[in-house]
């Protein structure tokens, strides 16, 4: 469904992604693992074309999206939940969702605000509140809900468990499992291996912007040396 082939991305002169290639198949939850600075966020941004790869190709549903403006990428059905959450703090919860709203595309799930409020009951209570009144956990839920309003077929989740209380992280696990059951494809980057284990089918490990491992989580568990070398847990 999503394919990166030999992607090279730079921040200024810093070479962050180095010939990175991997694929995400439809219906899977893929965990992108790696240390801090390994290039996880840059990978996400390179997929969204927020950082434009200098060479290589990103294909989504068979279409080459390299160099495409970000908003067009999003319109194709790629949803992006950034690391820093970036909700619109001056807008209400309902307005935040409105910003994310896009018509459903072929084969995508058609989300409505009511369905999202069922999935995130906390948000329903606070629909008239401004974003800045929400707690960190609620903000994280809102970013995910906002992205789902665009009816994406693939969601990029950048470190969803960062800075969130363990009990909320558990809720997040359940949400991701629900989404997966509904047929959504997810690529998530994580530092918390426990979290990744709880939701992902596949793992891609990157280090220095290069892929070091690509396989199922069972395979990863069977090779503790890989885990130790690149994830250092």
């Amino acid at each position: 469904m999503l394919e990166l082939s030999a992607v090279n991305s730079f921040y200024g002169k810093a070479h962050v992604l180095n010939d990175l290639s991997f694929t995400v198949a439809r219906g899977q939850v893929v965990a992108l693992l790696g240390r801090n600075g390994a290039g996880k966020t840059t990978t996400m941004k390179s997929i969204m074309q927020l950082v434009q790869p200098r060479s290589g190709k990103v294909t989504f549903q068979g279409q080459d999206i390299t160099g495409m403006p970000t908003h067009k990428v999003a319109k194709l059905g790629l949803g992006y939940v950034p690391e820093e959450r970036r909700i619109f703090t001056d807008l209400t919860v309902a307005e935040n969702l409105e910003v994310g709203r896009q018509p459903p595309r072929d084969g995508t799930y058609a989300w409505t605000t009511d369905m999202l409020f069922d999935l995130f009951p906390n948000l329903a209570e606070r629909r008239g509140n401004r974003g800045k009144a929400l707690s960190g956990g609620e903000q994280q839920m809102l970013t995910i809900a906002r992205t789902l309003m665009g009816n994406p077929s693939l969601v990029l989740l950048d470190e969803p468990s960062e800075g969130i209380a363990p009990v909320i992280v558990e809720q997040m696990v359940n949400v991701i499992k629900t989404l997966k059951a509904d047929g959504l494809t997810v690529l998530l980057s994580e530092q918390n291996l426990h979290f990744a284990r709880a939701v992902a089918d596949m793992a891609v490990i990157i280090e220095g912007g290069t892929q070091k491992f690509n396989g199922t989580l069972e395979e990863l568990n069977a090779h503790p040396e890989i885990r130790d070398a690149y994830l250092s847990i």
């Binding site: 908003h71 001056d90 665009g150």
Partner: peptide, 16 residues
């Protein structure tokens, strides 16, 4: 109003 706060994010949500 959303763009007033974070225009890049608005773009990432599919708005030109």
């Amino acid at each position: 109003r959303a763009a007033t706060q974070d225009r890049e994010m608005v773009g990432a949500l599919g708005v030109n």
